[in-house]
Design a protein around this nucleic acid. Structure first.
Lengths: 167, 167
DNA sequence: GATAATCTTGACTAATTTGCTTGGGAATGT
DNA sequence: ACATTCCCAAGCAAATTAGTCAAGATTATC
């Protein structure tokens, strides 16, 4: 299990795709512009996402990408591990006899923790994230109806204390 | 929130420290040998762990490191973020007005998810990990009493399906 | 059929991070 | 004094990230 900005890009792009569901295929150029990610980098990421069937592609004019399954059937953990290559070489890599029991002990502990994190992320679907945001958007509109407030810090609305996945 | 092998090294080292609690200060040389991590790299990691008071140090002969608090008061999330520098520059970094509402929307979604993961990891203490492993060790001993079985794959005992932190 | 839009692929590169080395200190128990 | 340990900073090779560039393949539309 690895968690870097690469995974964030992938999740962000997938969310962008989810948010524009129903508008037909979305081009990578659109996502690139909206999310500020380079087009070619997106191409690389989507190549992997496609191999894992997380997205479906349509070529030619009017083409683009769409979600491979429903947003409630695609989980954050899948997206991250799809792009992350996951070369988690734990020094003794399954051998479990690297030197003494002690060493393997901590190795097992880590791989176990890693599995826990992965399991957790695999409970959170793209739909969960969208639902959560939808609530916030409404709250935001209610607090600042029809106003442009450039310098305002909205982070007070984004406290992150709620339980997202109900795990 | 970032999760790489660097964080794994830190957690592994902290676990090593926990497991040898009560034996006085533990030298980095010991940890380096037991865990197969370079001494100088450990020094760098522990420098950061010390700044966050996650470990306490004693200099001179007989010196070394010990946990800064009880193993039940140190959480995996703390350890990881202590060594990770966490330069999570989300392009608009709190500005929330990068281009249009749409862009910030997905940014918020990600930072929210990041908080969720962090919160999850901050529920798992070093003690939790040790307790879990203690159970396994016992199980292992019961299955293979007093035997050296070099080629045996123990991974069947390590299924990772149990709920570790009870989160 | 020509054309343009779009995905698809591969090679290459710059910047950053990781993991580690080297080389010096500073503190302290014996 | 001396050996042991923590401390610290500079530097460096390998890997990864993030991105560019260039060439295709597919297909809707004119």
């Amino acid at each position: 299990m690895k968690l870097t900005t690469k995974g964030r890009y992938a999740v962000t792009a997938m969310l962008d795709l989810s948010l524009h569901y129903g508008e037909g295929p979305i081009t990578l150029a659109d996502i690139a512009q909206r999310q500020g990610i380079s087009l070619s980098y997106l191409e690389q990421l989507f190549s992997r996402l496609r191999k894992k069937s997380l997205v479906a592609s349509v070529r030619g004019p009017g083409g683009g990408y769409s979600l491979g399954r429903g947003a409630d059937e695609i989980f954050v953990g899948e997206v991250i591990s799809a792009v992350d290559e996951n070369i988690d070489t734990t020094r003794c890599n399954g051998a479990h006899n690297c030197q003494n029991n002690e060493r393997c002990l901590t190795h097992d502990l880590w791989s176990d923790l890693s599995n826990q994190i992965y399991g957790y992320l695999n409970k959170i679907s793209l739909q969960d994230l969208m639902d959560r945001q939808a609530v916030r958007e409404v709250a935001d509109r209610q607090d600042h109806p029809n106003q442009e407030q450039p310098g305002l810090d909205v982070s007070s609305l984004v406290d992150g204390s709620g339980d997202l996945a109900g795990a």
